[in-house]
Design a protein around this nucleic acid. Sequence first.
DNA 1: CGCGGTATTGACGTTCTTCAACACTAGTGG
DNA 2: CCACTAGTGTTGAAGAACGTCAATACCGCG
Lengths: 243, 243
Amino acid sequence: MLEDDVLERVSHRLAGHVSLETRDRQALRNLPRELEEYGAGACVTSAGATCDRTAILLEGLAFGQIGSPHKLRQIASFVLPGDLVDLHGALTGVSAQTIMAVTDCKFATFAVGALGRLVDDCPRIARALLMETLREAAVAREWVMNVGRRTARQRVAHLCCELAWRSREAGLGDGESFQMPLSTDQFADATGLTRLHVSQIFQRFEDDGLVVRDGPTMSILHAAKLGAEADFDDLYLRVGANR
Amino acid sequence: MLEDDVLERVSHRLAGHVSLETRDRQALRNLPRELEEYGAGACVTSAGATCDRTAILLEGLAFGQIGSPHKLRQIASFVLPGDLVDLHGALTGVSAQTIMAVTDCKFATFAVGALGRLVDDCPRIARALLMETLREAAVAREWVMNVGRRTARQRVAHLCCELAWRSREAGLGDGESFQMPLSTDQFADATGLTRLHVSQIFQRFEDDGLVVRDGPTMSILHAAKLGAEADFDDLYLRVGANR
DNA sequence: CGCGGTATTGACGTTCTTCAACACTAGTGG
DNA sequence: CCACTAGTGTTGAAGAACGTCAATACCGCG
C-alpha cells in the first residue's frame, strides 16, 4: 500500500540515535502503515483531541501551534520530512499541539496501539524514540531562549539558521538554498513578532546580503555571519550518538 | 547510604505514567545511588559538558538555563522535588542545560550507565521516562507560548500558576501558599522580562489581591482569577495516564 | 560599622505594535 | 476581457509596552 521507502526513512531516522538490529528493522517492517495526504492549510491534529494514529512526515512542511486557533497563535515547532508527528499524542492519548500543514503533505500513519507495542517489545526502538523526544524538548527550550532573550532580528536569524540546518539534515537542498514556503505571518508567529516587523527584518537581511527570500525558496548567503549574529550553536540539534 | 524514601519517590513518580510491576520496582531498588548536596547558587551541571551521572531532586529548588552564564540568561525550566534532572545529559552523554541550585539541594544520583541498562531491560521504566520527557517538552512549548505571545503581566501570572500547580503536585504546600524562594531576577529570566518590570507587576498583583510574595513564600489568593487572566490550562502538565 | 546582593523609584529611550491605507497576485464568475 | 474578491506583503505615522540608566533604600553578613 505504501512505498518501501517509508521503512527506510523511519529506520534511518531512528538509527541516527541508536544502532538498530535486524530484529528491530523487522518489527518496523511489520508495522502496519497507511498513506495520508493533507492539503495546504489543513489541520492534521488538534490540541486536546484524543489521538488514535501517529505519523511520520514524508513530504511537505507542517508546524505545531499552541493556543486556540485564530486567537493568539504561537508556533512552537516545525515538522520537516522525516520528523515524527505528535509522538506526545501517540503515547499519552491526547495531542498536545495543533499540527497544521503549510504545504500539501504526505504522511505515513500508524495506529498508536501498534506503536505502543513496538515501544514495549523493542528496547532499542523505545530508546530511539526517547532520544527523538529529548531532541524535541531541547529544540523547544532553545526556542524559549530565542523568543525570550533575543532581539527581533536575532530571532528571525536564528530561526533561519535552524530551518536551514534541518532542511539540510532532511536531505532538502544544500543548506544554502532550500524550499521554505512560510508566510511572513508564520515567521511572525514562530518568533513572537508581528508580520510587519518580520517583513522589515527580511528586507534588511536582503540589504545586508545575509538571507534572500524569493517566493517559496530561501537562500542563506552568508551562513557564518548570520549564525554569529543569531548566536546560533547547532549543538541542541545534534542529539544522536551516530552523527 | 541513602534513605529508602528515595526509591519510593522515584517509583511514585514513574508510576504516575505507567503501572510498574514488582520486577520494575526491584530493578529500581537495585539501582546504585548516592546522595549529593549542593549549596544555594551552585552549578549542578553545565550545558555542553559530558555527563556521567544523572539525578533526581529530593529537596530544594533548581532551574535550567540556556545560554552562556552572566551573558544573556534565559531560564528554560524549573526543577522541583521529585523531578528528574538532566535526563538529556544522561541519555545523550552531554548536558543540554546548565542546572543551577536556587536553594540548598539534595539529589539522589545515579551513574548514566546504570540508567541506560535500566532503560534497555525494563520496557515499562523506559516508557515512563519517555512520558517524563514528553512532559518536559510540553512544558517547554507552553513556555514558548508564554514568552512569545503573552503580555508581561500574563507571563508572570502564568508562571505563578505553573509553579503553584507543580508545588502542589510535589506535595509542598496546599497549592495556595508555598515556598518559592526565587529572586525577582530569576522570575525575569524565566519570563523574558527585566527584574524591574517583574517587580512592578508583583506590586500590582498584590494591589489586586491576586498574589502575595513575602520573602521566600508565595501565596495565590485568587487562583481562578489569576488562571483566567494568564490563560492557564493545566492540560500540558497532566501527561501521565494515572492522574 | 561598612559592604555586596537584592529590591525599588523615576525619568528617559527604544523597540516593537497597532492602525489604516495601498500594492500585488491569484482565483473567481460574469 | 473585466470587475470582484481574498490572501499576502509593504508603507508610514502614532503610540504603548517594555528596557535602560542612575540613584536610593533595604537587609543580612563579615
